[in-house]
């Protein structure tokens, strides 16, 4: 049996807590469409003024990397310590340039 919520789509919710900051993922919810998802997100996730701006994205539209594949996915960066500032040893007087 299909329940009514299963007919609704899943949306991911991102909230900007303060102007100038990034939107952060805060959770997800079911809704009929984007507009409804925004209103639900407002009611569900920003009841205590947690945000100044909300983004909703259909969960199906998110393409995510697989954590199980993390080893080989990120492997190209593992042998490049020279991308980090701390790799370079400089004389003390100029060390915090």
């Amino acid at each position: 049996m299909t329940t009514s919520t299963e007919k609704l789509e899943l949306f991911e919710v991102f909230v900007r807590s303060k102007r100038g900051l990034d939107h952060k993922h805060i959770g997800s919810l079911h809704a009929e469409d984007h507009e409804q998802a925004l209103e639900y997100a407002r009611d569900c996730y920003t009841r205590r003024s947690e945000g100044v701006s909300i983004w909703v994205v259909k969960s199906n539209d998110i393409c995510a990397s697989q954590e199980d594949d993390a080893d080989c996915f990120y492997d190209p960066s593992d042998d490049k310590p020279y991308r980090h500032a701390t790799y370079y040893v400089l004389p003390d007087p100029v060390n915090n340039m």
Partner: peptide, 13 residues
């Protein structure tokens, strides 16, 4: 960017 400056200084040194 901080590595950019440090690698340059290191090369100059």
């Amino acid at each position: 960017e901080s590595f950019h400056q440090r690698q340059g200084y290191e090369a100059m040194l």
